[in-house]
Design a protein around this nucleic acid. Structure first.
Lengths: 146, 146
DNA sequence: CTGGGTGCAAAGACTTTGCATACTT
DNA sequence: AAGTATGCAAAGTCTTTGCACCCAG
């Protein structure tokens, strides 16, 4: 996801809601896009707290993350029933999570998509979205054991 | 899941850990098995608070739920990124969640299991468990709209 | 008996909110 | 200039923990 594209998206969303595209919101969006991987609210907050110059308050980060989710730019889900992690929405995909090191591996398989749609229909359920999380051990952590 | 069976399982687990099968733990286990559907920690606590006679403290409920999870009798997962819900483990299955009324529909499809295993292998990932959550509208809530 | 268990209240972790000030448009 | 946004600190929500007393084994 390119920064310019995301900025456009977000500023467009804010306009429609008559909200303002402040320096803080822009900084947070850029910070997220630059990271590119998964992050918790706390990691993001710490990042801004460390770079003292760019100090942004916890409250603003929380408020902005909520906005970014509403705008469809960011996605969040629960990892291991412990951490809530965010990610920039790029393309549909699901996750494997190593319970040892926390690494997240993304994957996508269209056969599963098909089957899930089929099952939903069968149950009269109108599916909007879904998430698949596989918990286990990544390759590295398997080898560490030996 | 039968109560007697669950009681046996739990008491066995407790013994191996040199823990005690108290009246509170038994009451909580029975309360859970009787419900049979999904519940949040708060719903369970409220249940016990209402039935004043059987008053059990929040702390004990939390502590017991953790034990029951460790014992492999109960399972928990995040619903809609808001509620953490528990369920008695009976057979492997996944969930559809109506975002309007909160109803949970269970499903299982062995084709998906197969594909997930295949994908894990391809990525060198050792899968232990997985969860699939489909979010959308249940049949009832779709018709309400009309 | 003895070590783990319970209830209570206090403390934690994380998030939201009220309010005065500051900034975008 | 008008009205939203921010920062701060206080308040919420949910869960965990310390401690004195209690109970199962």
């Amino acid at each position: 996801v390119e920064i310019n594209q995301a900025v456009k998206l977000f500023s467009k969303y804010l306009k429609t809601k008559k909200l303002k595209f402040t320096w803080e919101r822009k900084t947070i969006l850029e910070g997220i896009i630059k990271r590119r991987d998964h992050f918790t609210s706390d990691e993001l907050i710490l990042h801004f707290e460390r770079n003292g110059v760019d100090r942004i308050s916890r409250a603003t980060v929380y408020r902005s993350l909520k906005l970014l989710e509403e705008a469809g730019i960011v996605n969040s889900f629960h990892l291991n029933d412990v951490f809530k992690v965010f990610e920039v929405i790029s393309s549909e995909h699901d996750h494997m999570i190593c319970y040892k090191c926390g690494k997240i591996i993304e994957f996508f398989d269209h056969r599963i998509e098909k089957i899930l749609n089929e099952i939903s229909k069968k149950k009269g359920f109108k599916a909007i979205s879904h998430s698949i999380n596989i918990s286990g051990l990544c390759e590295e952590c398997q080898n560490k054991k030996a």
